[in-house]
Simulated scan of single mutants.
Amino acid sequence: MYQEEDFLMISGIQHFVFCKRQWALIHIEQQWAENTLTVEGSHLHEKADQPFIREKRNDQLIVRALPIHSRELGISGICDVVEFIRDDSGVMIPKYQDRFRINPVEYKRGKQKPDLSDEMQLTAQAFCLNEMLVAEIKSGELFYFETRNRLTVEITREKLEKLQEITAEMHEYWRKRWTPTVKITKKCERCSLKNVCLPVLSKKESVASYMKRRLAE
């Protein structure tokens, strides 16, 4: 079990799956750069990320910006939206004296990605909710603004096991404060850190060390 001070950000899972170097640049070296995709993504999250706002619709309770964590995986973050849907076979929520099926919903700016970065982030949210509420969430949803589409994602044993492998590797990188060397792919052109990462494509030193050396020159 991890202590709170060792928690890593759930949002970083998407970065890690997309590119381990990008994750390390952001979370270990504290490098960040905005592009149109990150700005638009932040803007589109504003409505979802209104802390502690609850909305009741018939048998459904909608909670926005719900803080979550997992001591087992050592991660924490915020759920954009969690839908609590009244269900006799669901988990008991003492505050409301009723049983609910739990459906996490993650908002994304673009459209469905070819990799598992979005699905792994949603799986992490489900893992945290399972741990916190002693539940068994079998699915969640990804809402894509570009296509205005909700994609249902099954939370399978294989995905949960993959998530455990990913978070263990993230903690290992964090413990060593290690930034992987670059691997050039087509994804690099859409990366918000392209201009930070490219100057050291062929170098083994960290971006922080590179910048420090250049400033000294």
Rank of each mutant, 00 (worst) to 15 (best):
S139F: 07
G74V: 02
F100E: 05
L163I: 09
K194I: 01
Q125G: 03
W174Q: 12
H69F: 14
A48M: 13
V200D: 05
V82Y: 03
T167L: 07
I78C: 14
E83C: 14
S192V: 03
T123I: 00
L8E: 06
V82T: 06
D6N: 13
V82E: 08
E161R: 08
M132G: 01
Q30I: 05
K186E: 08
R86T: 10
S117N: 07
F16D: 12
R177N: 02
S89P: 02
R157L: 12
N149F: 11
R64H: 15
M211D: 09
C188S: 09
T147M: 05
K212R: 15
D59Q: 13
W178P: 04
V105T: 04
V81M: 12
I155Y: 02
N35H: 04
K138G: 12
S11I: 13
R190M: 11
F127A: 14
L73C: 09
Q97I: 06
Q14F: 05
E40I: 07
T123W: 01
R71H: 14
L8I: 11
L215G: 10
Q3W: 05
T167D: 05
W32I: 07
E172H: 11
T185M: 00
N103V: 04
M170F: 04
F84T: 00
D49H: 09
E55P: 04
K204A: 03
F145L: 01
K203L: 15
Y96D: 04
Q121C: 03
S139R: 02
E154V: 01
E141R: 14
V105P: 06
P94W: 08
H171V: 01
K108G: 05
Q121M: 03
V81E: 15
L142P: 00
L129I: 00
R57A: 08
E146P: 00
A135H: 06
E106H: 03
A33E: 15
I28G: 09
A208Y: 10
R150N: 12
T38W: 09
T181C: 08
Q164L: 00
G41V: 02
